[in-house]
Design a protein around this nucleic acid. Structure first.
Length: 821
RNA sequence: GCCGGGGUGGCGGAAUCGGCAGACGCGACGGUCUCAAAAACCGUUGAGGGCAACCUCAUGAGGGUUCAAGUCCCUCCCUCGGCACCA
């Protein structure tokens, strides 16, 4: 036996990373002979250091990309940085450092760490969203949306700390108070820009042709929240003037059950309709509601609250007058901000009526049930049924009820069938410095004036001060703020809010394809070669917002003629979360953080990559254990020794056509089949288990004359190829050690012969009354009669059947026979 | 609260379609090698009972469907992600 060299991960990893870099083998050409495969991972926020979660995510995309590459695809796997956002500004305030400096330093550090993974990053395509050559086009896109009528300015609420005089992100609100000064936070209406995503609500509900996790599709559907119903206008007189208040309802059939009416506390009509006697109570309640979060308000657990306004409104269908209340369970952001109170048939209205002693009237009765006294009810009856106590509509059957009332409203001109969505327009204004400027100028004469495209980008000034004024720091940079109007040439001021970073990340996957283009955001020809994205990986926390915004962007840009496909991401996969060894979320305060640099230094990148993928199902994540990394490290060592011990055999003459060789061949083909299937389904843990089984079999065979068979050599080569996507360095090194000269990462994936994966004899389980009593060997295609005869020959089976013949026999060919006595 | 996941040995997990529960790995125990230790290698390892052949129990809890349930249905408990300004 030849003397082994020792497996030294650090050495070979450095060596091969340099080799791959110098050859640029992972930099995808646009016009390769093989088909393009866009392998995308959600780009990171440059927080400073790569943590284990990044490693987890990126190893997954990299293993998938390498697998697809070996299967013959021209894979591009780009990387970039989503570099605008709040943390840079916090760092600026805390450490007196320019956000740009802080961000770019972090990016540089992360680039170095990313290279240590040995992943096939397509670096020439890198983009950084906070650099002018990127945000120029973010601004340009804003203008396209504006010109298409998809961007508009209106009053919208923001979290406001009255003491710091500043708007706050939700994250900065702790238990309803400001994280810095603990003052109660209120919601304040300010002028802001929004994107009209609701225009695409219906198209966004269509997921056909997408290979996405079912749960993500469900979450997006629920988020959009389409419901069909009717808008009905209730009427009242205020100082002789007729005022109409529309309500949205999914149950127009319950209109005769309306016994009260509720407005959201922030409803614009509240001030106008409130009577003098009720004014104090109403104002107090509105104040209180402004301090509550929507999550608190929507809680069905919380006891209902509300205040009577003193006003009454007329039910346009029944003509009845009912009192108008305000209550926090009605949200201004859904429907029309007004609700018709039908306590008999809506649980929230029921609770409200019980709390305030309002009447409850049953108007819907399920078929074959007698109406009952609502006073005896413990909850609302929300089901459908026949209309009762409903004047001319009495007796309308449940199938007709909703349609009948809606039709009546339409005929009378008091309402119409309509569709309501939970989805709201996308608020893109941020009162912050570190974001892409909104390319808009305000002129006293001409109003809102977009910055001409040839003047883009509107550059962020470097010199800013972070003062708690409630406005973007940009407002105090006069060289930035003051400009001239492009229409009239008169003095004008710039928009000082910046864009939500979700906007930057809604199109980066387009820029990757053409990152250096200074003439246009992207070339349509290049986009056609790569888009839509074939695989998109990222956390499930983005299931709704980011993924919905990106879909909206693509659809809107398609309608502007800038793209010609419908969906950005054909296949989507969510990786899970890596937890600390204690099963808790990793955090400095818990002291359970595993730093990738430390474990990579100790075990090498390949062992860390392998362990992360072996830990459990990739979409589940789980606790990280150092001992687990050791385990995979041991496996890699065994593979190293196995190949080194076999290197000698590779140089000698092969023994051909032996029984032992055929057995190895069968094992090898079974392994290829299993591992390939697992890779296809992104099940890296079981893929690796399959490789371990193959390697265990080869280690056993090493002790026999099998080492000199051609099949054994092939098995070794196969094992290295199967392992290459997970452990790229060690496999590259060993590949060269067995005498190959090309990179293993440009080899083709091994293929298996189905016939060779089948066993000659299978184990059939014999059950008696559903319990396993015997196992026997049979041909895979043995008939029921044969297997039953074999089973009945067993003493155990006979004893368990009590010597009698079975009453019933269930046979699953090649697997199981169940004899029921 | 609402929406969406998840719960299997001492631990991470495996188990195409409802068909042998516990693959693979970690840990533990025993052994080989060694002056010794580490490493490496070999073996055992769900729980309970039995001298043994074997038997019984067991996939968060309780109920149900089925020849057969980790897998399907109902009720409940725990836990994780999202909830529109963290990204």
């Amino acid at each position: 036996m030849m003397t082994r060299t020792k497996y030294r991960p650090a050495e070979i990893e450095r060596k091969w990373q340099a080799d791959w870099d110098s050859q640029g083998i992972y930099y995808a050409k646009d016009d390769a002979p093989n088909p393009n495969y866009y392998n995308l991972v959600m780009l990171p926020y440059p927080s400073g250091d790569l943590h284990l979660g990044h490693w987890y995510n990126y190893t997954g995309i990299d293993a998938h990309g390498r697998f697809m590459r070996m299967r013959g695809w021209n894979v591009s796997q780009p990387m970039g940085f989503d570099a605008f956002g709040l943390p840079a500004e916090n760092a600026a305030i805390r450490h007196n450092i320019q956000p740009r400096t802080w961000t770019l330093e972090n990016i540089e550090r992360m680039r170095v760490q990313l290279r240590k993974m040995g992943a096939c990053w397509d670096w020439p395509r890198e983009t950084v969203s906070c650099l002018p050559d990127y945000y120029k086009w973010t601004e340009w896109l804003f203008l396209q949306f504006y010109q298409a009528g998809l961007a508009y300015r209106t009053k919208a609420p923001a979290n406001w700390c009255p003491s710091c005089n500043t708007t706050l992100a939700n994250e900065q609100v702790v238990n309803g108070t400001c994280e810095r000064c603990h003052t109660l936070v209120i919601r304040k209406e300010i002028d802001q820009w929004l994107f009209r995503i609701t225009k695409y609500a219906d198209e966004l509900l269509d997921f056909s042709g997408l290979n996405w996790p079912e749960k993500t599709v469900t979450m997006q559907r629920n988020w959009i929240g389409r419901s069909e119903g009717a808008e009905i206008r209730f009427v009242l007189r205020v100082e002789q003037e007729k005022v109409e208040i529309p309500v949205f309802t999914t149950r127009p059939d319950t209109i005769y059950g309306v016994t009260f009416f509720v407005l959201a506390p922030e409803h614009p009509l509240v001030g106008r309709i409130t009577t003098t006697e009720q004014q104090k109570a109403v104002e107090g309640y509105v104040d209180q509601a402004r301090r509550e979060s929507e999550i608190e308000r929507m809680s069905t657990e919380k006891e209902k609250t509300g205040v009577f306004t003193g006003a009454y409104v007329t039910n346009p269908v029944s003509g009845e007058q009912v009192p108008i209340w305000i209550a926090d369970y009605v949200l201004m952001s859904y429907g029309t901000g007004a609700v018709m109170g039908v306590p008999a048939h809506d649980q929230r209205d029921f609770e409200f009526a019980r709390k305030f002693g309002l009447p409850i009237r049953q108007v819907i009765n399920p078929p074959e049930e007698e109406p009952s006294d609502p006073a005896t009810w413990t909850e609302a009856k929300a089901h459908y049924g026949v209309m009762i106590n409903s004047g001319p509509f009495n007796g309308t059957p449940l199938e007709e009820a909703i349609k009948a009332v809606t039709r009546y409203c339409e005929k009378q001109g008091i309402g119409k069938a309509t569709v309501s969505y939970r989805l709201r327009d996308w608020l893109v204004s941020r009162q912050r410095y570190w974001g892409a400027p909104i390319p808009i100028v305000y002129c006293e004469k001409d109003g809102i004036v977009p910055v001409p495209e040839d003047q883009l980008p509107v550059l962020l000034p470097d010199e800013v001060e972070f003062k708690p004024t409630g406005e973007s720091p940009l407002r105090y940079v006069s060289e930035f703020l003051n400009t001239t109007c492009q229409k009239c040439g008169g003095p004008a001021t710039r928009e000082t809010d910046t864009l939500d970073t979700f906007l930057c990340s809604s199109w980066y996957f387009l820029r990757y394809i053409d990152p250096k283009n200074d003439q246009e955001a992207w070339s349509k020809e290049k986009i056609a070669k790569w888009l839509p994205v074939d695989m998109y990986m990222g956390g499930a926390e983005h299931a709704v917002m980011h993924l919905l915004y990106a879909r909206f962007f693509v659809k809107a840009l398609r309608d502007m003629g800038l793209l010609n496909f419908n969906e950005p991401f054909t296949r989507l996969y969510h990786q899970g979360t890596v937890l600390g060894p204690d099963g808790q979320k990793m955090s400095k305060s818990r002291g359970n953080v595993v730093a990738p640099d430390d474990v990579v230094d100790a075990f090498g990148a390949d062992a860390v990559r392998g362990y992360l993928m072996f830990m459990g199902p990739f979409d589940q994540g789980g606790p990280c254990s150092i001992q687990g990394i050791e385990g995979v490290s041991r496996f890699l060592n065994r593979v190293w020794n196995l190949v080194q011990d076999s290197a000698e055999a590779f140089s000698g003459a092969a023994v051909v056509d032996t029984e032992i060789g055929r057995e190895i061949k069968r094992t090898t083909h079974k392994a290829i089949k299993r591992v390939t299937t697992e890779y296809e389904h992104i099940r890296f843990n079981t893929a690796l288990a399959g490789m371990m089984e193959l390697s265990n079999a080869l280690i056993k065979a090493r002790e026999t004359e099998a080492v000199r068979t051609a099949e054994y050599r092939q098995a070794i080569a196969v094992l290295l190829k199967l392992l290459a996507p997970l452990a790229p360095h060690i496999t590259e090194e060993l590949w060269h050690q067995i005498g190959e000269h090309e990179s293993i990462h440009v080899q083709l994936w091994p293929i298996y012969d189905e016939a060779l994966t089948r066993d000659a004899v299978v184990t059939v389980v014999v059950q008696v009354n559903g319990k396993v009593r015997e196992k026997l060997e049979a041909a895979p295609d043995a008939s029921e009669e044969e297997v039953q005869a074999l089973a009945m020959a067993s003493e155990r089976v006979k004893a368990n059947l009590g010597g009698k013949a079975p009453k019933k026999v269930i046979y699953v060919p090649g697997k199981l026979i169940n004899l029921v006595g």
